[in-house]
C-alpha cells in the first residue's frame, strides 16, 4: 500500500535527512517511533506529497507520487490520504457537520451521508453537529480531528503524534478509536509518535 525507497530530504538551511525504507501492506498498522526533531513529521509530509523529496520515491496504492502532476497529486491526496494532526486543525467559520462535509469534498464519498452519520454516531458527536468547532470541548475536538482524518475512507491514514497531549485514559481511548476506525474502513495506519504508552498496542515498529 505504502512504500518508500531511499528517501532523502533537504531543508532550506541545507541540512539533509535520509529515511529508512518503509513498506505497509493494505490494512496494516505500523508505529513509527523516534525522538523529536528526527524528521518524523517531515516524512509524513513527504509521504503525503506536500513536500518534494530530494531523492527517492514514495508509492501509494501502486502510484508513484513523483510521477503525478501537481493537480493529480492534490486530488489523489484528497481522495486517498487522511492525516490526523497532533494539533487539531479545523475551519473555524464552519460547523462540525460542514467541516466533515468539506473533508469529503474531494473524495468519492462526497455525498456519503451514511458514512458521516455512522462516524459521528460512533465518535459521540451527533448532538454537536451544528455547533461551531470552537464551541467543542477538548475531547470532542480530538474526536472530530480523528473523524476528519478518516471520514473519506482513505487508503492510508497518517496520525502525527495523536496522543502527545493526552492523559493515560484518553491516550488509550484514542488508540482504540484509531485502530477500530482504520479497521472499519480497511485503511493502512501509520502512527508517528515518541509516546512510549502507544508502543505496547502495536507489534509493527519502525525506528527513525
Amino acid at each position: 500500500m505504502v512504500k518508500t525507497l531511499n528517501l532523502r530530504y533537504a531543508y532550506q538551511n541545507g541540512d539533509e535527512l535520509s529515511f529508512p525504507d518503509i513498506e505497509l501492506t493494505p490494512g496494516e498498522h505500523m508505529l513509527m517511533i523516534g525522538p523529536s526533531g528526527v524528521g518524523k513529521t517531515t516524512l509524513l509530509y513527504l509521504m503525503s506529497g506536500l513536500l518534494p523529496p530530494l531523492r527517492g520515491t514514495v508509492s501509494i496504492a501502486g502510484k508513484e507520487l513523483g510521477s503525478l502532476t501537481r493537480k493529480k497529486m492534490d486530488s489523489f491526496r484528497g481522495e486517498h490520504i487522511g492525516i490526523i494532526f497532533q494539533q487539531y486543525h479545523f475551519i473555524k467559520s464552519l460547523s462540525v457537520s460542514d467541516n466533515l462535509r468539506l473533508r469529503q469534498h474531494f473524495s468519492k464519498s462526497a455525498s456519503d451521508k451514511k458514512r458521516r452519520d455512522a462516524l459521528v454516531e460512533r465518535l459521540g458527536l451527533r448532538e454537536h453537529l451544528q455547533k461551531k468547532v470552537t464551541k467543542l470541548s477538548q475531547g470532542q475536538q480530538q474526536r472530530l480531528g480523528i473523524a476528519l482524518g478518516l471520514i473519506h475512507r482513505p487508503k492510508i491514514i497518517f496520525a502525527d503524534e495523536p496522543t502527545s497531549n493526552l492523559d493515560d485514559v484518553n491516550c488509550e481511548k484514542v488508540i482504540e478509536l484509531l485502530k477500530e476506525e482504520a479497521e472499519i474502513c480497511k485503511s493502512s495506519l501509520l502512527i508517528i509518535t515518541h509516546d512510549l504508552r502507544v508502543m505496547s498496542h502495536f507489534q509493527n515498529h519502525v525506528r527513525l
Partner: peptide
C-alpha cells in the same frame, strides 16, 4: 489544512 484535503 485545505491543501491536505486535496484543494489546489
Amino acid at each position: 489544512l485545505l491543501r491536505t484535503y486535496g484543494f489546489r
